[in-house]
Design a protein around this nucleic acid. Structure first.
Lengths: 188, 188
DNA sequence: TTTCGCATGTAATGAGTTACATGATTTT
DNA sequence: AAAATCATGTAACTCATTACATGCGAAA
């Protein structure tokens, strides 16, 4: 029941089309909320049906028209109601850790390789977040004030990626230390 | 498509009933995989239908009977096949960060209070994990060898909780520094 | 006497993924 | 010539949550 509130929150900050929202989910707040275009378009249709958002059709030549959504008064009220309710920490389901847990079923070299791939991904994301952080830190004070809270969520993303990399170092040390790396390990 | 593999992984380590598995999800590996009893019982039924697990009925007097599941050869094969495929990092959807992002719509005192509640929860979990860690670190070497990989996943849980607490400190500093804490902030 | 633990399930609903669908413009 | 970007959607399916359902024994 929170995708709708994530959408309302984004629209409160600035109106936008479904496509815009998907971009913001991907680039802007992807470290704490993700939604596919299929989800977004369907949720927008529902929200419109419930009168929580409205849109203006922006006609474009040589490109498909855009429906630019914004909050209605009812939408803002619904959002504030949700903001007043406590939320639960998200449920974590991480397949990589399942693999590590049962890692004796995989040749160590394979496991190491997969951990290395994840490390590369986390390093990549960390680099992106650092660019965004620099943009914030070098912005004029007025801008910084406006982005104080979004910046906090970026900090969460930064710490998260750094933390994963720390753990991946530990994991490499443990799994790398595994016996003879050329020997087969499972009787597969 | 991974709940089944999480279940197979747990059963590979040790046979158990649906109830047992739920306990293990709650206590043992809850920091990286979660499943409710409804999910577990249904998935076990499916896995049984596909011949990946089998069970023995354990009759009990004065208590409901237990179906003790274990992997079949086909189940182990399916698990190994899955282990050979790369996995994606989990999608994160964290409502708390949506709230922080749009935090200007909440009175700062309320936001601070909610962050404090989450901090308490993370401190609690961290304390639990530290107890488990001590159990591991003081166990005989043979035990440590057996739990080398599960311990690594516990380390992930520990770092995760510590990392959240670090961020919550940052957040408290930013949101606590907010103007006059007695003044209303939204025109709700 | 009410709640907790043991032990199993079904049904309805909501959330999320994968696949299908269209069509022009710009970049590689 | 193929792939990516812009822009919107529908349909089928799987995954997850909430609610409903039962029943005994032990502890608070």
């Amino acid at each position: 029941m929170s995708l709708r509130h994530a959408i309302l929150t984004l629209l409160e900050r600035a109106p936008g089309s479904g496509y815009d929202l998907v971009q913001r989910f991907k680039a802007g707040i992807g470290h704490f909320w993700n939604a596919s275009h299929q989800q977004v378009y369907q949720e927008l249709a529902k929200l419109h049906g419930e009168g929580l958002v409205e849109f203006e059709l922006e006609r474009q030549e040589e490109r498909p028209d855009r429906k630019v959504y914004r909050l209605t008064a009812a939408g803002l009220a619904a959002l504030k109601t949700w903001f007043a309710q406590p939320v639960k920490p998200p449920k974590v389901n991480d397949a990589l850790l399942v693999k590590v847990f049962g890692g004796h079923l995989v040749p160590p070299a394979e496991l190491r390789a997969e951990l290395e791939q994840h490390a590369a991904l986390h390093r990549e994301r960390l680099a992106e977040y650092r660019v965004l952080e620099q943009q914030f830190l070098t912005a004029p004070a007025a801008e910084q004030a406006r982005f104080r809270l979004p910046y906090l969520t970026l900090r969460r993303g930064l710490l998260y990626e750094e933390d994963w990399l720390r753990w991946l170092d530990e994991a490499r040390a443990v799994i790398g230390a595994d016996a003879d790396p050329t020997a087969p390990v499972t009787d597969n």
